[in-house]
Design a protein around this nucleic acid. Structure first.
Lengths: 200, 200
DNA sequence: AGCTAACGTGACGGGGGCGTCAACTTCGAT
DNA sequence: ATCGAAGTTGACGCCCCCGTCACGTTAGCT
């Protein structure tokens, strides 16, 4: 009846349960904060029994890692890819910012997760994953310096400043009733186009 | 023997106990994160009994609020005051940044508290107190716009970007063995002097 | 249809936190 | 020196969480 040649029921249930746990965990972490959330808080937002949780994850930390890892990887990859085609500084900045803001807008739930648990993210992944891939951004900046798009300054500082400013602006943007990505992108692009050039 | 005309012993003990609790709480919040910290975790880092805690604070949230409130108030006041004397954009920026970075350097323990519990701070004080007084910064920016130091753009966005970038740079700076305030101040000042001017 | 390995279930023992309170100690006033 | 109020103590009852495991159910193979 329903659709295609899916895997067996066993496998489908497994996927569904895993997804249910991840979804419930995200909600719980956003609502209660990672530290105050218990495995029971997660399971309760699910139709499953408490024992089942442990068939999928060893503890709540593993769920948190799975949640953050996946998103961070995707975000870093996509902004990195977007910047590849840039030939001017404005393009480099604008393309990266646009992808970043659009990702956040498309997956607000995960954004809330990071926002509410920024300290935990930082403590757990020692990389300051707040910007989800600041190191990759720094690499991109170094490449841009190499090809003359940017003055030769500390790329890590540039990356930190950009990530911090961008994250904070995203918070503001998503608080609005009608988030305006173009406005945010334009602001960031002009701010950093002017600012980074001034460093030289 | 020891010094001046202090208040009675009763009063002195009270102050000492309160201070001990605040100190212990700060350590616990940094180490375990706010959510995972229990009142017992706080008391245990103290020579006091568990019941005594409740003579000073109703619960751990009250301690956290006391900790953050005090620092945020002081930081906002001092940066605000520093900026009052500025007559150029570079001065306005440089003075503010310097005070901010020096405060963080002087009270690293509280900085760690905010860094580790940024999400909680945001959730508890709905103001994004990550920058400890972004609203006040926005006010200062509006004043600067009024006196022609800055182009007339959304002061909230400017303030968010500045606070975010600055906080993230502070994290980097304090990770260094020999934190260089002047370097950080110079970087921020040039970045935003160039960037904010470009908005016009 | 019959069988079995895989999986879901929820009760259980052990651990620990919460906020209280009756008993005790100590300050400081008389 | 005496005494009462202020403050400290830690054990207590209640509650909830943790991770496990013996038991039931079911998918999917033959």
């Amino acid at each position: 009846m329903s659709g295609a040649a899916e895997a067996g029921k066993r496998e489908r249930t497994k996927q569904a349960n895993r997804a249910a746990i991840l979804h419930a965990a995200r909600d719980a972490f956003v609502e209660l904060g990672y530290g105050a959330t218990t495995v029971r808080d997660i399971v309760r937002r699910t139709a499953l029994a408490s024992g089942t949780f442990y068939n999928y994850f060893p503890d709540k930390e593993a769920v948190f890692r799975a949640l953050v890892d996946e998103t961070a990887r995707a975000a870093a990859e996509r902004t990195h890819h977007a910047r590849r085609s840039a030939t001017t500084l404005e393009e480099f900045l604008g393309l990266g910012f646009r992808v970043y803001f659009e990702l956040l807008l498309a997956d607000r739930a995960t954004f809330e997760l990071v926002r509410r648990n920024a300290g935990t993210v930082r403590a757990m992944f020692d990389e300051p994953a707040i910007g989800a891939g600041v190191d990759l951004l720094a690499d991109d900046l170094r490449a841009a310096i190499g090809s003359g798009l940017l003055p030769d300054h500390d790329a890590r500082m540039m990356a930190s400043a950009m990530a911090g400013a961008t994250f904070e602006l995203a918070v503001r943007m998503l608080e609005d009733d009608a988030p305006d990505v173009e406005r945010a992108v334009g602001f960031c692009t002009r701010l950093f186009a002017g600012g980074l050039a001034r460093l030289g």
